[in-house]
Amino acid sequence: MAAGLSAELRGFQAVQRLAYECAETVAAQLRPGTTEREATRALRAEAAARGVRDWFHLPFAWFGDRTAFAGFRLPTQFFPTNRQLEPGMPFILDLAPIHGGFTADIGYSGSLGPNPLQDRLMADLREHREFILREVRQRRSLRQIYEDVDRLMGRQGYQNRHRAYPFGVIAHKVDRVKERRWSPHIAGFGTQSLRGLANDALHGHREGWSPLWSPYRMSDHPPHPGLWAVEPHLGFRGTGAKFEEILVVTDSADPEQSAFWLDDELPHVKRWKEAASLTEAKGGA
């Protein structure tokens, strides 16, 4: 898909890759004893070094059972804490930098040393990535897709943890943002992006769609063209895993073109491909 991307989509793709690079760099630096705050600070520094000035939202980092949002009741609990990383602990880094006016919002799951349980969760997320794309191409209502994803998670034996996000969203729209010299943020969210979302919400309200892909009636509409940052988040007892990346939805009649993942060269996708070729090789042998 990458070859045929428009200049605009290439811009989004570049920021998304930049964001994943930051996440991978910081993930490689994590040591036992690193705190969530230190990790988010490192993410901000990495992004700033790559020229990021504004954020859709500031980086989040969740360690241990916080990856599954265990015991989260208040929105403030999402913010980084002094929880220290320990060997074998899962972690999730979530950041949404804006660069050159393009927004990305990504989630990176990993663990400090091997964690077979989280590996399993990540492997099972592959099905969700394919499933969501298939259903979006069929133009099913977003609310229905949400419920289908819920059911898939239930069958897999997991809990839906994206329900803990604001409005319980599995995805939200991202867009271009004007670059300003001063880019303040409120509660971790960039004001420019919040404005964009609010605008979308207003238009959507008039036209019958919502920039937030939620389990509620407001999402009972077919996928709206635009860029959606999709973030299915699995939780299994004290372990969580998610990916987050941009799904492009267009109004093209060709199903292939009507929806596609912006980039197939992302760390989790590459990991799945490697695992698949490995099992194939094993099967062949």
Binding site: P116, L117, R120, R155, Q156, G157, F236, R237
Partner: peptide, 13 residues
């Protein structure tokens, strides 16, 4: 299938 899924995840737990 569901039973074996439960068993598999139980082992991981």
């Amino acid at each position: 299938e569901a039973a074996s899924r439960t068993a598999e995840l139980s082992r991981l737990l």
